[in-house]
Amino acid sequence: MPPAVELLSILTFPAIDPVAFSVGPLAVHWYGLAYVAGIMLGWVVARGMLRNPKLWPNDTPPCTATHLDDFLVWVALGIVLGGRIGYILFYDLGAILADPIRAIEIWNGGMSFHGGFVGATLAMVIFARRNSIRLWSLFDIVASVAPLGILFGRLANFINGELWGRPSDMPWAMVFPTGGPFPRHPSQLYEGLLEGLLTFIVLQVVGRLFGGFRAPGLVTGCFVILYALSRITVEFFREPDAQLGFLVGGWLTMGMLLSLPMLAVGVWALLRAWRAAGSRS
């Protein structure tokens, strides 16, 4: 891309300090606050859904508000541990094998959504069994509010000036501090809108207005499908991780490859929910 293309960028990256505030030597980052905000807002919305028995099979919520309160710790651990382990395995294994201490340097690489997804799923399975909660309904509760966490997380990625997109001449492209001299797609915002805001709205409509929560697993299937399709779409605009580059065929990225099995799982979950609802009718 010629240097002149940079002139087409009419937006300036809003160089926001990644540190939201400091308390003595402790620096609180926007990225950490995003995780807290996403989990807490999801908790508030989920509690509201539990207060409406009409949303659930047999007019009976799958768990109590107290269960949901207890689950906060479980899901937070699942997301953080799964996200970090997933990043290590999918994106940075070679570097960490060479320097194992890098594994705990969460500022050096970060988290993987797909790893966090697996970690949160395992947390739900264990928690549901320990508390005799209908597993697929618990999946639906978490799936219906998870896009809020994704939205806040992508906004934090944007503030950090990371995970930027490929070079672009679109009028909303911008030059990122660590992305070289050329304007790039703000792919973090694309992901926040598609995987986060739009997916959240669709799932709430499906669950609340079309009775999706009364067919356990249906909202979960919709979430997994929507996330996978959104992620695959945005990967065409997002710069692949430097240490991996493009993979199979010279155009696929790791994000695409990890989203394909998610898409298959989502379709399976949706078909399973439809079949189960049909057998009960």
Rank of each mutant, 00 (worst) to 15 (best):
W274I: 13
G109D: 08
R84V: 01
I104E: 06
F200M: 11
V118N: 06
D169T: 08
V28N: 05
V265P: 08
H114C: 07
L197T: 07
M254Q: 14
G115Y: 04
G212M: 01
A173Q: 08
A120L: 14
L68D: 05
L148D: 10
G179A: 05
L7W: 12
I85D: 04
W74R: 10
E239P: 01
P18Y: 09
G32C: 00
I126D: 13
H67G: 03
I126H: 09
P14C: 04
F246N: 12
W164T: 10
L33P: 05
C63Q: 12
L252T: 15
A4V: 13
F223E: 02
L189K: 10
G249F: 06
F237L: 15
A123I: 09
L257R: 01
V202A: 14
A76L: 15
T12L: 13
P177L: 04
I126M: 11
G110M: 13
I232A: 07
A20M: 14
V36Q: 00
F200S: 05
G115Q: 08
R208W: 15
N131K: 08
W164A: 06
N52A: 06
L55A: 09
F237P: 14
F90M: 10
A128D: 03
L77W: 13
G86K: 05
A173E: 12
I39M: 11
L193V: 14
A173V: 08
R129C: 01
P57M: 09
P177I: 07
N52I: 11
L263D: 03
V23C: 09
F90L: 15
A37I: 12
I106W: 13
T233D: 07
Q204N: 10
A34E: 06
E6W: 08
A276R: 15
G42A: 08
C222D: 11
L198V: 15
G38W: 00
L163G: 11
F113A: 00
A15V: 12
N160P: 02
A37C: 13
L263V: 07
